[in-house]
């Protein structure tokens, strides 16, 4: 049985609501990620993932690949 963790990232760089789709689909296509939601207004990125397959650094790299910087946030 795999265990999922919820990691919250924040990016305050999102500049148009359509970039949300870019980040979301990029994250969702990764193995080990159950669900990723990007909230444009608050700049919050919520990811449910299997920490053994995808680490926090992997998540940050994926967001960076989509063209935005993010940081991990406690809540």
């Amino acid at each position: 049985m795999k265990t999922l963790t919820k990691t919250i990232l924040r990016s305050d760089e999102l500049n148009c609501p359509s970039c949300v789709n870019n980040i979301e689909s990029n994250l969702n296509s990764m193995e080990g990620i159950e669900k990723a939601t990007v909230k444009f207004n608050s700049g919050k990125i919520e990811v449910d993932h299997n920490p053994e397959l995808v680490t926090e650094d992997d998540l940050l790299a994926a967001v960076q690949q989509s063209g935005y910087s993010a940081t991990v946030s406690p809540f």
Binding site: S18, N21, N22
Partner: peptide, 15 residues
Amino acid sequence: IQKAWLGLKNRQTNI
């Protein structure tokens, strides 16, 4: 173009 390509890969047309 990089972002456009990324979108296409994920089957999305974007700005």
